[in-house]
């Protein structure tokens, strides 16, 4: 099964996120970058399926030229082909992103002479969280999509996909070629091996040419929510605080 995984390069925040002075982006001066978590799991799932059943894994990203770092990482953990859709580095709105990704996918499929049987997106990106790019791309390609997937079993001409609901799963059986929005927890992504790291340096970076106009959602300004005054009540510095804690549990009525 040939699988395409669409990933996004995002800052790796610690305890606090700062915004640049112009309010147009996250101040990444002191942050590293990573692959958005849901997509890292989507990639791991694709690699596991290919290892088990055969086929190739292609990874596609739309982003600044620096996103090559995330594509090389993908190659180091098992992706066979990597494709970059370069932007000017500014944040693209979801409609524009979806048009560009669709063009890049159609180009890659034309070159392969066949459709990817499965295309995986993350359920939503960790940063802008638009909850829509995968759905838009699937619709443009005329393929089915289901989101919030935490289990995939490839079948003959279809995939069985489990969507997480409170306390269990909904089960979908989707005909291929299909698109799925994957959530973290579907697997535990591997770390690259030394051999994988070396191989990733030799992976050929393809670049896709696209032409996509801005959509109707426009970012005006990013800002941090108002800081809530910190007035933590320190109940103690050893286990003798247990009595004060249980007083609180009693007071709020959870001890019944």
């Amino acid at each position: 099964m040939n699988i395409l995984v669409c990933v996004k390069r995002v800052p790796a925040p610690g305890a606090k996120i700062n915004v640049t002075d112009d309010g147009q982006s996250v101040d990444a001066a002191h942050l590293g970058f990573t692959t958005s978590p849901h997509e890292e799991c989507a990639l791991e799932e694709a690699v596991q399926i290919a290892e088990r059943d055969g086929g190739e894994v292609t990874v596609l990203t739309l982003g600044p030229v620096e996103a090559e770092e995330q594509l090389r990482y993908a190659a180091s953990v098992g992706a066979h082909k990597i494709i970059l859709v370069p932007t000017d580095g500014s944040a693209w709105d979801p409609q524009r992103t979806a048009v560009a990704l669709t063009q890049a996918i159609e180009t890659a499929e034309a070159a392969n002479g066949s459709a990817f049987e499965l295309i995986l997106f993350g359920n939503e990106s960790a940063d802008s969280g638009g909850f829509q790019v995968g759905v838009r791309v699937a619709h443009k390609l005329g393929r089915p999509i289901v989101n919030a997937i935490k289990g995939i079993v490839p079948g003959d001409g279809s995939v069985t996909a489990n969507r997480e609901i409170d306390g269990g799963f909904e089960v979908y059986e989707v005909p291929t070629p299909a698109v799925l929005g994957v959530k973290e927890g579907i697997n535990l992504p591997r770390y690259p091996t030394m051999k994988g790291r070396l191989a990733s340096k030799k992976a050929v970076l393809e670049t896709a040419e696209i032409d996509a106009a801005a959509g109707g959602q426009t970012l005006v300004k990013l800002h941090r929510p108002p800081e809530q005054a910190s007035n933590t009540e320190i109940l103690g510095t050893d286990e003798s605080a247990a009595s004060a804690i249980v007083d609180i549990l009693e007071e709020i009525g959870v001890l019944a």
Partner: peptide, 8 residues
């Protein structure tokens, strides 16, 4: 943890 002012 971050807010975005946007127009539609």
């Amino acid at each position: 943890s971050l807010l975005e002012d946007a127009t539609l």
